[in-house]
Amino acid sequence: MRYSLFVGCTIPNRFPGVENSTRVILGPDHLGAELVEINEFTCCPALPTFYSTDRVTWLVTAARNLVLVQDKNADLVTMCNGCFSSLLKATEELENVNKCNFVNAALASVGKQYRGRLVRREGNRSIYEPVRVRHIIEALYTDFGREGIADRVRHPLSGLRIAVHNGCHFLRPTTRTSVDDPAKPVMLDTMVEAAGATSVDFPDKQACCGAGGGIRLQVPKLANAITKDKYECIHAAGTDAIVTGCPYCLYQFDHAQKDLKVHPIPVLHISQLLALAFGVDAEHLGFEWHFVAVRPFLKKVDAVGVV
């Protein structure tokens, strides 16, 4: 497995622990994937800023990021639903020859060309496929599977009740593709179960967190009102933590709980949860940047270990 991690904007600047835990669980001590470092990435670019105002600029900027991966023989893996949606959408648009030519005309001014990833050569012809854009949840689920993850668990989180939040752009990244079933997703739940925890059911399980599309930036009250509904369902189900695959959903659940002054439920990224289950010391996982204290959850994790 060769992955190139696309960390995006939110993770390194708000939740650096998410990036670190992803690097640790994929690293040689645990899952042993090969990570290809690329130092020329920019913003994915963000859908509300670019896709909403100028599709051309959005596609050109996204294509520039994709060009950096196309010759590396690696899958581009994101830990963020926004980056996943933006870049996957871009690979689909670039399958259109006219759009691709147009984008390449712009990219030529900076000495770049988007071709996609080389699959094979047939005589003089080269066959390319779109750059593979993947989400960390899907990559873990498909490449390692429930068994592969469960094998690595040194500290099963048995008895802990987890509410999973997939996030809209993981379930419906583009109008054409979805990696998991949007109505009844299984991947994130399976990863949580592989860590030994229980994924609990609650009403409106696939509801939106409320932050997406710039709502959090413009009308935080509305974002919090949407989160409140989902929070109440999660709270009523009796859960120890909320686990998501998206840093922006994480940020919203974290912040909204502070703004709404409700009984706090810790929020974790799936990479952080798996790192805990793999036995990584919690002090490396950057929980100090979470607004809702994660310590009560860590105590429960430790208590499970003693038994």
Partner: peptide, 13 residues
């Protein structure tokens, strides 16, 4: 109207 579509694409579904 402020830009408050979350872009969740549930409507399309």
């Amino acid at each position: 109207i402020p830009w408050i579509c979350a872009g969740c694409h549930r409507c399309h579904e």
